[in-house]
Amino acid sequence: MSAQASSPEITFHPNHSGGTKKIWRTFWLLSVLTIIELAIGLVIYNMHKGEHPNATLVLAFKGLVCILTLAKAYYIVSIFMHLGDEIRNLIMTIVVPLCLFIWFIIAFLWDGNSWLNLRNRYQGVPAKTEQVAPAATEKGAKD
């Protein structure tokens, strides 16, 4: 099937004859995504310069950066690491266990936020954080 001699665990040799065009395209894509991320980062920076940044808007921008990062991760894993070229079985055994991260992240951050609320409620909000404090206390009072 192929001139390459390698382990007989392998049933067929994937076709690697494609050119380097795809690789370069991915490179430019990643660069553009990074530049967009930086632009958003600078937008957030300038928003913070203002007296009262719109918290929802900041959060939305941060969420957008997270999504862009996931897109970058997808391209690195799929094209650079060639996972996209592997057969479905391998792709699934790599991707499915990573779903554990969802609950891992949710539960940890949730508890972190809960420590903040507890501390602010029972120890009082420290004076040096005037700007953030009202919002946090409100949130604490709600739950």
């Binding site: 913070h48 992240i105 940890f108 972190g112 501390r119 954080t129 953030v132 404090a133």
Partner: peptide
């Protein structure tokens, strides 16, 4: 690499947890 992803994941999630528990965090900019 999956295993290592969990090592890094644990570090970054710990960092996120601590950040969520603070009223103030340093602005990277």
């Amino acid at each position: 690499l999956m295993s290592d992803a969990f090592t890094f994941g644990a570090f970054l999630i710990s960092y996120g947890t601590i950040r969520f528990s603070q009223n103030f965090w340093a602005d990277p900019n």
